[in-house]
């Protein structure tokens, strides 16, 4: 569990970090909380010559809430998400989800930017950001661009981010209505067997808007527009929920692992989504 030798960089601003990436191409990687990258390096499954530690870059930190617009710096830790009262008020689903990530020790180190940028299908934040319709800000040698979370993920560990770009910020509009993040895991510290992020807005006892995203049930997070559509105009009764589950099951492609075979995961995905819908509806 000893990584191969590497050069350690600790730039003070984003531009300096990008210069290191430009100098070394795919030999370099940025380091946020390190919970995915460091183990991979220790296992020598990731061997890189240059590690670019982002922790000294002040512009990557901080949470701001201006009206309905929420903006979160990439180096914000899960613990900072949980502790931020204003964020919990306008978007409580973030606190609910972050509290289900590992344990306090991990949450004090792990960052929201690392969680969304790494492209690990087991991470919770990508699905949540898809559910929220968040936008990622990417800064590279050519300037700044924005990508929707729903367009960002291509395959496991493959994203729209270029090698010389850094994901710096996550922005979304605070949702209204009910919410739920439901996750089944084998134990603390485990990835989800299945997880569901659900947002529901209602008027006059009927769903007016809904958003649903699933985690660790494909090689990318799955935003299921069809599942959300199935709830619109309903009161989230059994029939509507069953329809949403059926639509969601068409969109996921789980694979067998130590958590269980495909048949089990598909069943659990349905149960977890039903529970998330129920809880979100009760809060809508």
């Amino acid at each position: 569990m000893i990584p191969a030798a590497f050069e350690y960089h600790r730039p003070a601003d984003v531009q300096a970090a990008i210069r290191v990436l430009q100098d070394h191409g795919d030999e370099a990687r940025v380091l946020a909380g390190g919970h995915s990258l460091i183990p991979m390096m220790k296992l020598r499954m990731a061997e890189l010559g240059h590690l670019v530690d982002l922790q000294d870059i002040a512009e990557l930190k901080g949470i701001s809430v201006e009206g309905a617009t929420v903006s979160i710096g990439a180096m914000t830790t899960q613990q900072e998400l949980i502790a931020h009262e204003e964020l919990a008020r306008v978007a409580p689903i973030l606190r609910e989800a972050a509290l289900q990530i590992a344990d306090p020790q991990v949450r004090y180190m792990g960052t929201v930017g690392g969680n969304v940028a790494n492209g690990d299908p087991g991470n919770d934040m990508p699905g949540l950001m898809q559910c929220l319709g968040a936008t990622y800000t990417l800064v590279g040698p050519g300037g700044t661009r924005e990508v929707a979370a729903r367009d960002f993920y291509e395959a496991a560990y493959m994203t729209d981010r270029e090698d010389e770009e850094i994901l710096t910020r996550i922005t979304f509009t605070a949702p209204t209505g009910g919410y739920a993040y439901e996750k089944q895991k084998r134990k603390i510290g485990d990835y989800a067997t299945a997880a569901a992020a659900v947002l529901i807005a209602a008027e006059g006892g009927k769903v007016t808007r809904a958003s649903i995203a699933m985690t660790n049930l494909s090689d990318v997070p799955v935003h299921s527009g069809a599942a959300a559509e199935a709830l619109i105009g309903t009161n989230c009764d059994e029939e509507a929920t069953t329809a949403a589950i059926a639509a969601m099951l068409d969109d996921i492609e789980p694979t067998e692992d130590n958590r269980g075979p495909v048949e089990f995961k598909r069943h659990v995905a349905g149960v977890i989504l039903a529970r998330a819908i129920q809880r979100a509806w009760s809060r809508a």
Partner: peptide, 26 residues
């Protein structure tokens, strides 16, 4: 939950504490 499991070609499937269950206080 705790086991040392092998696949059919003898690979250890539970070689880290991610998959080998060691209970925490939780």
């Amino acid at each position: 939950g705790q086991e040392i499991a092998y696949d059919e070609i003898g690979n250890v499937k539970t070689g880290t504490l991610m998959d080998f269950f060691l209970p925490t206080a939780w």
